[in-house]
Amino acid sequence: MLAIVCPGQGAQKPGFLEPWLDLPGVRERLEALSVPAGIDLVAHGTVSDADTIRDTAVAQPLLVAAGIIAAAELLSPADLPSPDLIAGHSVGELTAAAISGALSDEDALRLVAVRSRAMADDAAKEPTSMAAVVGGVREEVLAAIERHGLHPANLNSAGQVVAAGAVDAVAALAEDAPARARVIPLQVAGAFHTPYMAGARDAVAAFAPELAPAAPSTPLVSNAGGELVTDGGRYLELIVGQVASPVDWEACMATLKERGVTGIIEVAPAGTLTGLAKRELKGVALANLNVPADLEAARALVREHAGVAPTAEEA
């Protein structure tokens, strides 16, 4: 059983798309996707600096386009089996929608353009931020987050919760960390996946009827409690709600485990989600697809794990 996973905002790095432009047709495809994205994906993926691509309105379309390109190259051989499941973290859910066919590539880029601009607008309304709380006891961590008037924006794993809210409240949490936990401020523009993003959620909801969701070719695992989704309209509905609701990646990993996933490939820019899986999904084979040189090993993993039911011992 093989899953493809797609990273969220913060995974981007300056120049990370440069190696992909050496492949035939990639530059032209990125140029075409730049139209619905409303930004120059080639420039931002190759020469833009870290501050430029940290901008929400740039980072999100860039990540979705990168994942679409990497997955298309990965799955291009006609004899390659299809993945069994696809999941994305936060904006990675739009990448997952495109890879699965729940949305066309163009619709996914149109949607992320609206989503990213609306989230950037909400983030600019008042000073908000996010911080990762690593370690500690889950109940105590959540209690500390609530005590400081913050929200649990990301439930990333058993040992990591991301808190979000007012800048001063995030700073106060850092000074009052839960027992046996570290609070690590994140370089983000706002309190994503919290009620602070209500305006962005409404903007995405207003735009969603312009899209044409379809049945995904591969089941999707949603950030909303790890729900397994086989209907494109339902997945789009969950994507809309996700803008102002927590990302439950811990539940997504639980679903992958329950379904018997034995191999996971993270598309570019990879490493964050396989890092979480390494700690939470012991024994699952992992691969990062960051550059074209990774394609051969990733395809080998697809051939070894896709469509293969887990053994009784693995299940």
Rank of each mutant, 00 (worst) to 15 (best):
S104W: 09
L211C: 08
L220M: 15
V247E: 03
C6G: 01
H151S: 13
R27Y: 02
V134S: 02
L21P: 06
A300Q: 12
S90Y: 05
V47F: 00
N156D: 10
L63F: 06
S48G: 11
P292M: 05
L30P: 14
E106W: 05
M197G: 07
A66Y: 02
E314I: 00
G101T: 06
G226W: 05
A206K: 14
A177M: 02
L186T: 00
Y235L: 14
I69H: 09
P216F: 04
T56V: 14
V167G: 07
G25S: 08
E126V: 14
K125L: 15
M1I: 00
A11Y: 02
T218C: 10
T262K: 12
A172K: 08
P246F: 07
A43Y: 10
R180V: 01
R234V: 15
L63T: 10
V42N: 01
L30V: 12
T52D: 07
D49L: 11
S245L: 12
I265Q: 06
L94S: 13
V141Y: 00
A206M: 06
L74F: 07
I99N: 07
L109V: 12
L289H: 03
A212Y: 03
A224F: 07
A72E: 15
L2F: 03
A70L: 03
A87W: 08
A132C: 11
V114Q: 10
A87R: 12
A191C: 09
R234Q: 14
